[in-house]
């Protein structure tokens, strides 16, 4: 059985008096590609921020590579993280090469490693270009290169395809597939793109403050009842109907009043 990379047990966290995530437990094994789905405000980013040690005062426990992250922050050096694009200041005066080299701070720095990470994501020709001059898709590839340059064992991606075009999205997903299948990287991806999650992941977690489902991705998508029961929130049901309509080729818009 492959070793556990992430182990979350009874995790709860709240801003102020209300809980953003409540009693969540799941595991991610080595080589897994876990897709996390849930509506906006479901607590996906909060969950990531807890796993990444940014939020510390949570209840429950989080283990990375078998160790509690509170007792060993050094574990985070084995994690590559790609945040939602909107958290990056695009006018910041850094070139692609400089931005990717941030991923090696605190580690042994080598310009060859940086250049090879840039090559991996197909941005050789843009390495001296300022990030403010890149398209959304190219910027996402810079962030992948930055996350990969330290050769992490775990990649965490928080809605990485927001506001990028379909072509870039396709390229982005093919890089993720290659990382998971060929390089055996463990990946956790949160996304609203259920089709992508279905194609890319082998495991899925459905979160809306609580964990509604965690298990095999085919078991989830092949069982409509299971899928629907996982989404108790009305906003999520709307989201699911849109997905079914798209899959069945229906022209009709999902009716938010239909349960």
């Amino acid at each position: 059985m492959p070793p556990e990379i992430v182990s979350v047990e009874n995790l709860s966290f709240g801003y102020g008096s209300s809980l953003s995530i409540e009693n969540i437990s799941f595991n991610v094994s080595e080589g897994d590609f876990l897709g996390i789905v849930g509506p906006n405000g479901a607590g996906k980013t909060t969950l990531f921020r807890c796993i990444l040690g940014v939020l510390g005062n949570y209840a429950g426990s989080i283990r990375l590579f078998g160790q509690d992250i509170k007792s060993n922050k050094g574990l985070l050096k084995r994690v590559g993280y790609i945040p939602q694009k909107r958290t990056i200041e695009q006018e910041f005066p850094v070139t692609v090469q400089e931005a990717v080299s941030f991923g090696l701070i605190g580690l042994r720095n080598s310009s060859n490693t940086v250049l090879s990470a840039i090559t991996d994501v197909g941005l050789d020709e843009l390495k001296n270009k300022r990030i403010g001059n890149l398209s959304g898709g190219q910027l996402q590839r810079v962030l992948i290169a930055k996350a990969l340059v330290s050769n992490p064992d775990l990649l965490i991606l928080d809605e990485p395809t927001i506001s990028i075009d379909k072509e870039s999205e396709k390229k982005f997903y093919s890089i993720l597939t290659e990382l998971n299948e060929d390089r055996k990287k463990t990946i956790i991806l949160s996304s609203h793109d259920l089709d992508a999650i279905k194609k890319l992941s082998n495991k899925i977690a459905c979160v809306n403050k609580r964990l509604f489902f965690h298990g095999n991705v085919h078991e989830f998508f092949d069982n409509e009842k299971l899928m629907m029961s996982a989404y108790l929130e009305a906003s999520m049901q709307t989201h699911m109907h849109s997905h079914f309509d798209a899959e069945n080729g229906s022209d009709s818009k999902a009716d938010p009043n239909v349960a």
Binding site: R49, G53, K77, P83, E89, I105, G106
Partner: peptide
């Protein structure tokens, strides 16, 4: 210098990177 540049670029990612 390098750490401060990273923090100025993105505080949260710098924290995740162990700074």
């Amino acid at each position: 210098y390098k750490k401060l540049t990273y923090i100025t670029f993105d505080e949260e990612q710098a924290a995740v990177g162990g700074l």
